[in-house]
Amino acid sequence: MPQLNTMPWPMIITTMIMTLFIVMQVKISKYSYPNSLTPKPINKTTQHAPWKTKWTKIYLPPLLPPQ
């Protein structure tokens, strides 16, 4: 059974890591960041949830008849 040649593996792995790094740098560099870094004011609005004011009845499971 022939043995697997593992000599080029370190070169392939380093090339792959470098390629991934370059691709990620290109993707990040295309992102445009905002010029002003001041935080925007947050308007707190309370949303009306219908289940908060609505009364719901919780039913118990039916009891089994005695055996």
Rank of each mutant, 00 (worst) to 15 (best):
M1V: 14
M1G: 15
M1K: 07
P2E: 11
L4F: 14
L4E: 09
N5M: 00
N5I: 04
T6L: 15
T6N: 08
T6V: 14
M7R: 14
M7D: 15
P8V: 01
P8Y: 00
P8L: 03
W9K: 08
W9Q: 11
P10H: 03
P10Y: 02
I13A: 13
I13T: 13
T14H: 08
T14R: 13
T14A: 15
T15K: 12
T15C: 12
T15A: 15
T15Y: 07
I17S: 13
I17T: 11
I17D: 08
M18W: 11
M18D: 10
M18Y: 11
T19E: 04
T19D: 07
L20G: 15
L20Y: 03
F21N: 08
F21I: 14
F21E: 05
F21M: 15
I22M: 13
V23S: 10
V23R: 06
V26W: 10
V26P: 00
K27F: 13
K27S: 12
K27G: 11
K27P: 00
I28D: 09
I28H: 01
S29D: 13
S29V: 02
S29R: 05
S29L: 09
K30I: 04
K30Q: 13
K30G: 04
K30N: 09
Y31P: 00
Y31E: 07
S32Y: 03
S32M: 09
S32L: 09
P34I: 02
S36I: 02
L37W: 07
L37H: 09
T38G: 02
T38P: 00
T38D: 14
P39M: 04
P39W: 03
K40S: 08
P41M: 01
P41V: 03
P41E: 11
I42C: 04
N43Y: 12
N43H: 10
K44N: 09
T45I: 14
T45M: 06
T46W: 05
T46C: 01
A49L: 14
A49P: 00
A49M: 10
W51C: 00
W51Q: 05
W51G: 00
K52I: 13
K52H: 04
T53C: 01
K54G: 00
K54H: 10
K54V: 05
W55H: 10
T56R: 09
T56D: 02
K57V: 08
K57I: 11
K57L: 11
I58F: 08
I58Q: 12
L60V: 02
L60Q: 10
P62A: 06
L63C: 02
P65T: 02
P65I: 00
P65W: 01
P66Y: 10
P66R: 11
Q67I: 09
Q67A: 07
